[in-house]
Simulated assay, not measured.
Amino acid sequence: MLSISNTVELADWEIDISQIRAQGAGGQNVNKVASAVHLRFDITHSSLPPFYKERLMAFSDQRISKEGIIVIKAQSFRTLELNKEDALARLKTLIQSAVKEQKVRRPTKPTKGSQRRRVDKKTQKGKTKVLRGKVSS
């Protein structure tokens, strides 16, 4: 079970994790084995709420295909278990970022004081530029 939020959980059968590579690291130290993990998650056939599905399908991320399949590869760690945990954590953060409401920023008007300061600054700069160009004789 992967818990996305307090109310949403994904069952293990919904997440397909397979080992895609187990090979020697190469070079002189061939005893080290890198185990990569390939995680596939189908949005359309999942038990996610409809709101989550809509947001995920509309979310622009290269890991989400047009058919609604999320593919995540994890190969940062040497052990298969750590790579599985990493892939699941990435899936969780991807779903959370897609569903999170974007804050609408309220445009703020500049105050009278800040407008006056800006105008004063601009006029002072203009004066020094004009004085810089003239040569006193």
Rank of each mutant, 00 (worst) to 15 (best):
S3F: 09
I4V: 07
I4R: 12
N6Q: 11
T7Q: 13
L10I: 01
A11G: 12
D12A: 14
I17D: 02
S18Q: 11
Q19V: 10
I20W: 05
I20Q: 09
R21N: 06
R21P: 03
A22M: 13
G24D: 12
A25L: 14
V30Q: 15
V30I: 15
V30N: 15
V30Y: 14
V33G: 04
V33W: 02
A34H: 10
A34G: 08
V37S: 04
V37L: 07
R40D: 09
R40N: 15
H45F: 08
S47R: 15
S47V: 00
P49G: 05
P49F: 03
P50L: 15
P50C: 11
F51R: 15
F51N: 09
Y52E: 02
K53E: 04
E54A: 11
R55E: 02
L56F: 04
L56G: 00
F59D: 01
F59K: 01
S60G: 08
D61Q: 06
D61I: 04
S65A: 10
K66S: 12
V71F: 10
I72A: 07
K73T: 09
Q75C: 08
Q75K: 11
S76E: 08
F77S: 04
T79F: 00
L80M: 08
L82P: 01
N83W: 00
E85P: 00
A87Q: 00
L88D: 01
A89E: 14
L91R: 03
L91W: 02
K92N: 06
T93E: 14
L94C: 07
L94A: 06
L94G: 04
I95D: 01
I95V: 07
I95E: 03
Q96E: 13
S97C: 07
A98N: 03
V99C: 05
E101H: 08
R105A: 13
R106C: 07
R106G: 06
P107W: 14
K109F: 07
K109R: 10
T111L: 06
S114Y: 13
S114G: 08
Q115F: 10
Q115G: 03
Q115N: 12
R116D: 10
R117K: 15
R117F: 12
V119T: 12
K121R: 15
K122N: 12
T123K: 15
T123L: 10
T123H: 13
K125L: 13
K127W: 04
K127T: 09
K127C: 05
T128P: 00
K129W: 09
G133A: 08
G133H: 12
S136H: 14
S137I: 09
